[in-house]
Every structure is written in C-alpha cells, then in structure tokens.
Computed example of a mutant assay.
Amino acid sequence: MNKVAEITIYFWIIKICATTLGETAGDLLYMTLDIGYGPSSLILIGLFLITLIWQLLAKRFNPYCIGQ
C-alpha cells in the first residue's frame, strides 16, 4: 500500500522538469497572457490541488505515463 514513488535518477529528472514547467506556466499566464499575478497563482494552485486530491483519494500510486 505504498503511494510514494521510489527516488531514483528519474525522480530528479521529473522534479527538474516539473519545476521548469511550473515556472514557464506562471510566466505564460502572468506575463504573456497578462492575467495578473494573483489569478495566475490561483489557477496553478487550483491545478495542483486537483491533482493532489485525486492522488490522495486513489487506492494505490498512479503515475501518469504517456503511452500506457
């Protein structure tokens, strides 16, 4: 009943990519689309909370893998 991913080199690669994509999404919403800092933050926090709740309610760890 383990919901935690094993920490390997793949973990760190995904972590770096996620951080980079988060920064890019923030810049896209805030600067490029001129939505504003507050609304951009709320949108990204909302997406995070939706995926967090989805994972916490899961009966087992469900990594999203393209091609499966």
Rank of each mutant, 00 (worst) to 15 (best):
E23D: 13
F48T: 05
I7D: 03
D27F: 13
I13L: 12
L57D: 04
Y64R: 07
I7Y: 07
I13S: 08
F11T: 11
R60M: 03
T19L: 15
D34H: 07
I7R: 10
K59P: 00
L42Q: 04
A5R: 12
A58S: 15
W12S: 07
L42I: 10
M1D: 10
T8N: 13
G38V: 14
I45D: 02
Y30D: 05
T32V: 14
L57R: 13
L42T: 05
T51P: 00
N2I: 10
A5F: 08
W54F: 08
L49I: 07
Y37N: 10
I7A: 13
G46D: 02
R60N: 13
I16R: 07
G38C: 04
L52H: 03
I43N: 00
A18F: 13
L21I: 14
G46C: 05
G38L: 15
L28S: 01
T8H: 12
G46V: 02
L33I: 06
G46E: 01
D34Q: 12
I35H: 01
Y37W: 14
C17M: 14
T24Y: 11
K15W: 13
T51C: 07
I16M: 15
T20C: 10
Q55S: 15
T32H: 09
I9E: 05
I7T: 14
L42C: 07
I43D: 00
A58D: 12
L49Q: 04
M31H: 12
L56M: 11
R60K: 15
E23N: 12
I16H: 07
C17G: 03
N2R: 09
F11Q: 04
M1N: 09
Q68H: 10
L56H: 06
M1Y: 08
W54Q: 04
M1G: 11
T24W: 08
L21E: 09
F48K: 01
D27T: 10
Q68C: 12
E6A: 15
I45S: 08
G46R: 02
L21A: 12
I66K: 05
L28V: 14
G26H: 03
L29G: 00
K15T: 14
L44T: 04
V4R: 06
I14D: 11
L57T: 10
L49A: 07
Y10G: 10
T8D: 12
L52Y: 06
F11V: 06
G36Q: 05
M31R: 12
T51F: 09
I14K: 15
A18P: 00
T8K: 13
E6N: 11
G46M: 03
S40R: 00
S41H: 06
T19K: 10
F11G: 04
N62I: 07
F61E: 08
G22R: 04
F48Q: 04
T24N: 02
L21D: 03
G67N: 09
Y30I: 02
W12E: 05
K15C: 10
E23M: 15
Y10S: 13
W12D: 04
Y10W: 15
P39K: 06
L47G: 11
K3I: 05
I45Q: 02
K15F: 14
K59A: 08
N62W: 02
A5P: 05
D27C: 08
Q55H: 10
Y64F: 15
I53V: 14
